[in-house]
Simulated assay, not measured.
Amino acid sequence: MNRRVQLGPVDTWYGEDGEGEPLVFLHPGGVDSRALQPNLVALTQQFRVFTPERRGHGRTPGVPGPMTFEDMVTDTIAFVETVVGGPARFVGCSDGAVVALMVALRRPDLVERLACVAGVFHRDGFYGTWSRSAALIDW
C-alpha cells in the first residue's frame, strides 16, 4: 500500500506491506524504495514492512536547503513516531544504513534491532565529505 505523510517540511512517500512486527527498510542514496523490491516478498511474509523514501529521493520531493544525514535522521525519527508508532526493527542499505545507525545512536528506544547492509564502517573513509553535523558524532 502506498501512502504519504507530512513530516515537518517533508511530504514523505512510503510503502507499507505485510503483517507482523514493524520493520523499517531504508533504501540506498540516489535511488528510492523500488531498489528494495527484490527483498520485499520474503520480508513481508514475516514483518509489516515500511519503506519510507527520504527527502529528495523518488516520490518524496526535496526541500529548500542542503540535504544532510542529520536531517534524514530527524525525518526518520518523525516517521517512526508518527507512522510506525513505536520501536521497530531497522534494515538500512548503504546511505540507508548510515541513517539507520544514526537513528539508533540518537534514539535507541525506537530501534528494536538493527541490520546495516553495505554501510560505512569507519569514518576515516568519509571524514570531511559528510555533512558537518554527521561528522560531529562521537565515534
Rank of each mutant, 00 (worst) to 15 (best):
A78N: 10
R4E: 04
G18P: 10
G29N: 06
P9Q: 12
V98R: 07
A35I: 06
V10P: 00
G65I: 11
D95M: 13
P108F: 06
V98D: 11
A135I: 03
T74C: 01
A97S: 14
R106L: 11
L136C: 09
V83G: 03
R48N: 08
G65V: 12
P9C: 09
G96L: 09
Q46F: 13
V73M: 09
R4L: 02
D109T: 11
D124P: 02
S94E: 11
R106V: 04
L23H: 10
R106I: 01
L36T: 07
S133A: 15
V91P: 05
L7Y: 00
L26T: 10
R89E: 04
D71Q: 14
L7C: 02
D138Q: 13
L7H: 02
L110A: 11
W13L: 01
R54G: 12
A42R: 14
P66F: 04
P28C: 14
T76Q: 12
W13F: 11
V31Y: 06
G58I: 04
M67S: 13
L23C: 09
F47G: 07
R89T: 05
W139M: 13
G20V: 00
Q46K: 15
V84H: 01
G62F: 09
G62L: 10
A100H: 02
R54D: 08
V41Y: 09
T68F: 07
R54Q: 15
M1A: 15
R132D: 10
V41F: 07
A104H: 08
E21F: 12
A104D: 11
L101D: 00
P52N: 09
F90S: 02
V10L: 03
V111G: 09
A118D: 08
T60N: 13
P64T: 13
V5K: 00
G8Q: 05
D124A: 15
A42S: 12
V49M: 13
V99G: 03
A88H: 04
A115I: 15
H57W: 02
T129R: 08
R54E: 05
P108A: 09
V49E: 08
V41E: 15
T51C: 12
G8I: 04
V103E: 12
N2P: 01
E21L: 12
S131T: 15
H122V: 06
H27M: 13
P22M: 07
V10F: 00
A35C: 05
R106D: 12
V99F: 00
V24Y: 06
T51E: 06
G8N: 11
G30F: 11
D17M: 04
R55N: 05
R89H: 15
V98K: 05
P66W: 01
M102L: 14
S131I: 07
I77H: 11
F47K: 12
V120L: 11
D109A: 14
